[in-house]
């Protein structure tokens, strides 16, 4: 049971830290807000064009917001060599990974839940019926991003030019997540029947499963020797 406990303590620590500093969430939200505004200035958003482009815009905004959060995730551990302590503590490294991933997942999801209503307001969307489908898309896609992102956050945090390296390494890897998320969001926003885009849910599920397991195993090599 110490495995579950270690996960809980990791999540607890990240949440308390975030509650005190509000650093990650505030920077994520404001960055995303600016992304939304820049997009709406860059494309003249009449109703029809918005529908076609919107799914893409939403996920670009979410992905970059997520990268902001992921970049900060292990940066906090670097201060006072806390990463070193995590490494030499007897807690299983997999538990540390899962705890970190859960915290990142929660932050990203929270940001998305706050941002999505803004999209609805800014672009006059009508999503009452598809809201549950969209929620599942958000959950699955965010899990995929968090699974790979947490591993890569740990990978890039101790190297030079980490701000650049995280997106450079992460974005090519999560292309399947982005494609699937955009396609299913587009389907839901256009009110297409679920069967037309249900295949993307399978892709998201498979991706999440594979990369949570792979990252779980590989994380030990990042944090441990």
């Amino acid at each position: 049971m110490s495995f579950i406990k270690a996960i809980r303590w990791m999540v607890w620590k990240d949440l308390i830290t975030e509650m005190r500093s509000r650093e990650t969430l505030v920077s994520m939200l404001f960055f995303a807000l600016i992304v939304i505004l820049v997009f709406s200035f860059s494309f003249s958003m009449d109703h029809q064009a918005a529908r076609e482009l919107l799914a893409g815009i939403i996920w670009v905004a979410f992905a970059f917001t997520g990268i902001i959060g992921l970049g900060k995730s292990f940066l906090a551990e670097l201060h006072n060599d806390c990463l070193e302590y995590l490494q030499m503590s007897p807690a299983p490294k997999g538990a540390i990974y899962l705890g970190k991933m859960t915290a990142n997942f929660l932050f990203m999801l929270l940001a998305e839940v706050v941002l999505f209503p803004l999209f609805i307001i800014f672009f006059n969307l009508d999503v009452v019926e598809e809201i549950w489908i969209l929620l599942v898309v958000f959950l699955l896609a965010t899990e995929g991003l968090a699974a790979v992102g947490t591993l890569f956050s740990a990978l890039t945090v101790q190297i030079r030019a980490r701000e650049v390296m995280l997106p450079v390494l992460l974005l090519p890897m999560v292309i399947p997540v982005m494609i699937a998320a955009v396609e299913s969001t587009r389907g839901a926003l256009n009110g297409e029947p679920f069967a037309l885009y249900s295949q993307w849910f399978h892709l998201l599920g498979v991706f999440d499963l594979i990369f949570t397991v792979v990252s779980y195993w590989l994380f030990e090599l990042i944090l441990d020797t």
Binding site: S2, K5, A6, W9, W12, K13, I16, T17, R20, S21, A76, H79, N80, D81, C82, E84, Y85, L86, S89, P90, A91
Partner: peptide
């Protein structure tokens, strides 16, 4: 050399967290 402390946690929370990872 590094203190292994989280700046945003207070002393007791730091102790609790670090010891919890040791079980």
């Amino acid at each position: 050399h590094g203190t292994h402390l989280y700046d945003d946690l207070n002393a007791i929370e730091n102790l609790r967290f670090c010891l919890a990872l040791r079980g």
